[in-house]
């Protein structure tokens, strides 16, 4: 087996190039006045951190926190019972239902968002189709429902995969030893499924926090999350005046990175090799 280890060396180089170096550059961009497209001499500066004091950034941070927390909470409240219920079903039904949950994920994300736009608009195509006229476009509710619908499967799958593998005889043992159903759930089942819950929460929360197309479309441009600000700093404002927008974007990206490192440490604690991630 020793000789086979050589095969992972190129992967180290690859990861160094695409993960470590860009992260270092993000740090440099955040802490200096370096221009990404015309690299020359640069000086250390903390100016870019001033964006945290801007009102719109504060609102975007609050929105990100608010929408991702609500989304994650709803996804958990729906997703855990669904995953649990799935795991109690007979093998065949379970497989069919899980497959049916995967299929919609293969539809284009942007088209799904456009479809939700039609659902939430009053007297729209959706009204013509179903007779239901919702006037939710541009509201918090629309954004939350859209986010939940988008990320719910990512909560269900990790929890389900842990519950599915769980040894059922543990339940019986717990009941034989005198625990009630509720006690069995709280003290046996739930703690054993915690790795799936942690993965599920992270796989829902981080994408919801950084989404930018969905809040922009379903919020009619009035709801801005941190993802919208980062997108604008890297893709739109660059063409404008200041030229330092990328550096400000780098500050915000680093902030997101800090969160994902924290999430990462939690995952590695419960699941070292990332088996609950797929």
């Amino acid at each position: 087996m020793k000789r086979l280890t050589r095969m992972q060396i190129p992967y180290r180089v690859w990861m160094f190039l695409f993960i470590v170096i860009p992260t270092l550059i993000l740090f440099v961009l955040a802490l200096t006045n370096m221009n990404l497209y015309q690299i020359g001499a640069f000086d250390l500066t903390l100016d870019h951190f001033a964006i945290f004091s801007k009102n719109e950034i504060g609102i975007a941070f609050w929105n990100s926190f608010f929408y991702s927390s609500i989304t994650t909470l709803i996804c958990f409240l729906i997703g855990y019972p669904v995953a649990y219920y799935l795991s109690t079903l007979p093998n065949k039904t379970r497989k069919i239902l899980v497959s049916l949950m995967i299929v919609p994920l293969w539809s284009n994300m942007l088209l799904r968002i456009v479809a939700w736009e039609k659902v939430f608009t009053a007297d729209s195509y959706f009204t013509d189709l179903t007779g239901i006229s919702l006037n939710l476009i541009g509201t918090q509710t629309a954004v939350v429902i859209g986010l939940v619908a988008m990320y719910l499967p990512f909560m269900i799958f990790p929890i389900f995969s842990v519950l599915e593998k769980m040894d059922r005889s543990l339940h019986e043992a717990s009941k034989d030893l005198g625990a009630t159903d509720f006690q069995t759930f709280v003290r046996v089942t739930f703690p054993l499924s915690s790795s799936g819950v942690i993965s599920g929460v992270i796989m829902t929360m981080l994408p919801a926090m950084t989404s930018f197309v969905l809040p922009a479309r379903l919020g009619l441009g009035t709801i801005s999350l941190i993802g919208n600000v980062i997108e604008s700093k890297f893709m739109k404002e660059v063409l404008g005046s200041s030229g330092m927008s990328i550096n400000e974007g780098a500050v915000l990206s680093l902030f997101i990175m800090v969160l994902s490192v924290a999430a990462f440490m939690m995952i590695t604690r419960v699941d070292k090799e990332g088996e609950t991630l797929i």
């Binding site: 190039l17 695409f18 993960i19 170096i21 860009p22 992260t23 550059i25 993000l26 961009l29 990404l36 992270i202 796989m203 981080l206 994408p207 926090m209 950084t210 930018f212 993802g227 980062i230 997108e231 890297f234 974007g249 990206s253 997101i256 990175m257 994902s260 999430a263 990462f264 995952i267 990332g274 991630l277 797929i278």
Partner: peptide, 16 residues
């Protein structure tokens, strides 16, 4: 890259 939000991965790649 699995845990990192896509936007961070996208920006990292764009930078490199």
């Amino acid at each position: 890259p699995v845990v990192n939000p896509d936007i961070v991965t996208g920006i990292s790649l764009m930078i490199i």
